[in-house]
Amino acid sequence: MHASLPSIIVIAAAAGLASCSHRATTSRQAAVRAAYDSFDLPARKASNPSKVTVRISLDKQLMYIAEGDRHQDILLAAPVCVGAPGSPTPRGTFRVRAKDKNHRANTHGWAWNPATGAYRRCYRATCPEGSRFTPTPMPYWIEFCSASYGMHTEYVHPRPKSHGCIRMHKNIAPKAFALVRVGTPVIIAGSQPWDATIGTAVPRPVDPSCLPDTPAKDCSPAIFSDHKPLAWHE
């Protein structure tokens, strides 16, 4: 039985709407990607690295790296993404335990099936037989508290969303990584003294929530150089 003309028109219209919707989504994602990738903030080098401290405001999702307690001592003020309510970022005073520019997670990542070319998120312990496991990249890892917690490159959302780590924008992470060293104090609290002054003027990147996972990129070594060249503000 042949479909009636009205039915054909409805089907064609639906297909056209789906196609338009896909193009609109793709176009929006491209715009968000471009805006997110261009985000950057200035940072100054420390004159005395031994005096540098990192202070995290959990309530404001802000990171301050400073060389003292005064307004003019701030070297970098930037947005971060902290732990979600079910997996909060630990509070307290810690010290940087380790640094690793090319760090990858120990337990979770991607399973790649060579036969199908498909990727899927998984844990190392549950990687399907016949698949190749690649750990999740955590570029510019700055470890504090324990091996389970660190500051690293990952999408910075406008709401707490991490599993406890402190996520930094990919163009901010290289600067933070260069400013701290093993032993640098990391002070994490609900608020920080600069929240009501400097914190109110710190811009945030566009919300990257609509951007899809990119497993092939995550599994490539190129992920560790996916950022703007490191530059300092004089």
Rank of each mutant, 00 (worst) to 15 (best):
R181C: 03
H152A: 01
W194L: 11
A31I: 11
Q192P: 00
E154D: 12
A77E: 02
K161C: 07
Y119I: 05
G150C: 09
E154T: 02
I74E: 00
A201K: 11
I74V: 15
A176F: 06
D207Y: 07
D40W: 04
P135D: 05
A78K: 04
T107M: 10
A31T: 13
H22L: 15
S38V: 07
V80R: 07
P174V: 11
R124T: 01
P88G: 07
W112V: 05
V206G: 05
S225G: 15
I172R: 06
P221T: 09
H227F: 01
Q192E: 14
S87A: 14
I198E: 12
D213S: 11
P128E: 05
P90C: 07
A201Y: 02
I9H: 00
R159I: 12
D195M: 10
A78Y: 02
P158F: 08
L58N: 03
M168G: 00
R28A: 15
P229W: 05
A13T: 14
A12T: 11
H233I: 00
N48E: 12
T25I: 09
A196C: 00
S50F: 01
S191V: 12
V180W: 08
A78V: 12
D59G: 07
K161R: 14
A115C: 00
I223M: 07
T107L: 14
G117Y: 05
G86P: 04
R91M: 13
P160K: 09
L179T: 07
R91Y: 01
N102C: 10
I8R: 13
G150T: 07
W112G: 00
K161N: 13
P185T: 06
P221D: 04
G92I: 13
G16N: 03
P114Y: 02
P42E: 09
A98S: 12
D73S: 15
Y123R: 14
S21M: 10
K60P: 00
G190Q: 13
G68N: 06
Y123H: 10
S146E: 05
E234V: 05
I166W: 08
A46S: 15
I223C: 06
P160W: 07
R121L: 11
